[in-house]
Amino acid sequence: MQQDQEVAVEARDLVKEFGPKRAVDGVSLSVPAGSIFGLLGPNGAGKTTTLRMLLGIIDPDSGSRSLLGCDQPLKVACDVGYLPEERGLYPAMNAREAIAFMGALRGLPLAEGRRRAVAMLAERGLADWEQKPIRSLSKGQAQTVQLLGTLVHRPRLIVLDEPFSGLDAINQEKLEALIRAEAAAGATIIFSTHVIAHAERLCERIAIIAAGKVAFSGAVDEARDQLRPVVRLQTRAAEGAWRAALPPGARQVGREWRFELPPGGPEPLLKSLIEGGAGIDTLSIERPGLHDAFVAIAGAGTADAMGREVPQ
């Protein structure tokens, strides 16, 4: 596959079946180098299977993929850091050795891995973890160690499968900061999540996956732009000629009117409201969030399913 050097990961029409179930059904993606890219969708949508095909852990039944310019992903495995959804560390290893061991699996000399592990733990105020066996750490602490092991060999591509699962709010913020720092240093980052807020805060581009298909792929702003901004209006006058300026879909919630911004923009709306004697108390124009865009693209049922999922 010919690969543009500015594209880190590309997939075309990936299909994967497990028995009678088609888990991934024609997924195509393009991830720009140096970007933070989110795979967004409910559990069971096909996100993990897609990631595993991209990484060469499993092969697609049909379709093609390219990783860092190579159509044989395992050949570039040493340039990839992968945090799977199913966490796993040797419980008897201490944190330093666990991090160094994970680096060694990606070609980093063990002595250098130990040196980097000590430095990475110290940088985060975790020097006292260095000799602690994994079995003595909490689930969130062990997950932090595994994440550092994912990064210790300084990969060009970082793939994180549901990385926020099991982390409390403070550690989620720390992970978000770490993801931003890795991207700022030049790494390409792909992460899957069923929490829309993480994708909205972090991602430049996303793919929304539902039932094994890509419902949308592109910039976060492009997803949000599929919906018109929402106007929230409060007036002193309850009736009058100004009411004709409200679009047919306007609805009243208490004293507030809510409706989509008309295609002509705010200026004609304001002119009609003022000339009609509305007596504007407040008027705000709010751009739809990614959650609203997700509902519009993937459907309310898919969004509801994501909302019901509780992080482990």
Rank of each mutant, 00 (worst) to 15 (best):
A223F: 00
A100K: 03
V76Y: 07
I57E: 10
P20H: 09
A184N: 07
L121W: 03
W129A: 07
A45E: 02
A300F: 10
L261M: 13
K271I: 02
R115L: 12
A199D: 05
G125R: 09
I57W: 06
D304K: 13
A210M: 00
S272D: 14
G299E: 13
Q226G: 13
T48F: 03
L167D: 05
P155Y: 08
G125S: 11
G63L: 07
M120R: 11
I134H: 01
D79F: 01
W242K: 01
V7G: 04
S35N: 06
A215E: 14
L74G: 00
L55I: 08
W129K: 11
V195W: 03
A185I: 06
Q172A: 15
E97M: 09
E123M: 05
T150V: 06
D161C: 02
H291A: 15
P268G: 12
P163K: 07
G81W: 01
M93D: 06
P32C: 12
T50P: 02
G19D: 05
S165T: 13
I58E: 13
R180Y: 11
L110M: 14
V214A: 10
I170W: 12
R52F: 04
P268L: 12
A77W: 00
R308I: 10
L178C: 07
E222H: 00
A215Q: 14
L29M: 09
M120E: 12
S138N: 07
A244W: 00
A92F: 14
Q234R: 15
E260W: 09
L290D: 02
G140F: 08
G140A: 09
R255Q: 15
A238G: 14
T188Y: 09
L40S: 01
R243H: 08
Q5S: 15
L283E: 00
L157I: 10
E309C: 00
T50K: 01
G63C: 11
A142I: 01
G69N: 10
P248A: 15
L51E: 02
L89M: 12
E17H: 13
L157R: 04
P42G: 04
D281W: 05
Q252S: 06
A177P: 00
I190E: 01
R154D: 15
I280W: 01
L121M: 11
Y90K: 00
Q72D: 13
L273S: 04
P311F: 11
D79Y: 07
A296P: 02
F259V: 13
A23M: 04
R180H: 12
G19R: 03
E239R: 10
D225E: 12
T235A: 13
R308S: 14
V159F: 03
L270H: 02
G107M: 07
G34W: 08
R251P: 02
Q312T: 08
I297K: 09
P266M: 04
A241G: 00
A296K: 10
A223T: 02
R22K: 12
L283A: 01
R116A: 04
R22C: 09
I99W: 02
G307I: 06
E275V: 08
A8E: 09
L14E: 04
E239H: 10
E267L: 10
E162F: 04
D281Q: 11
K75T: 06
L40P: 01
E6V: 00
P266H: 03
K174T: 10
V9S: 07
Q252D: 04
T302G: 03
A210N: 11
V230N: 04
